[in-house]
């Protein structure tokens, strides 16, 4: 019974992982891929670790610590990547639209 439950959790994690990671191959924006990666990397990995937890309940402190650190760090990394990459995109646009070296007559 426990093994069926554990296999189910691991299978769900693998499905989430493959679905979210396959969006990396497309040509969408960074933020769109970030949403899908939060499905695959955070939720899929938590599901796999819960499956491992059913399998080996004796090591629960370590696996619980793994779940907690996975949740906290992956979410914070997602936020940092989102804010940093959106700032970078804004700066690129500033450079594109407000070129300080541009002078009238340069177009020729």
């Amino acid at each position: 019974m426990i093994e069926v439950l554990s296999s189910f959790c691991i299978l769900v994690g693998l499905v989430f992982g493959f679905w979210g990671t396959s969006s990396l191959l497309g040509s969408r924006s960074v933020l769109f891929k970030l949403h899908n990666l939060s499905v695959s990397d955070t939720l899929g990995s938590i599901s796999i670790i819960v499956g491992l937890l059913f399998l080996r309940p004796r090591e629960w402190p370590l696996l619980l610590l793994a779940i907690i650190s996975l949740m906290l760090w992956n979410t914070m990394l997602g936020y940092v990547l989102a804010s940093c990459s959106s700032d970078a995109v804004k700066n690129q646009h500033d450079v594109l639209y407000f070129d300080p070296d541009f002078e009238i007559g340069d177009e020729s």
């Binding site: 933020l31 970030l34 899908n36 939060s38 979410t75 914070m76 959106s86």
Partner: peptide
Amino acid sequence: DIFLITFTPKTTVLN
């Protein structure tokens, strides 16, 4: 707040 919004996959806080 930022953690809860970013943790759910449909939404991410930018700023």
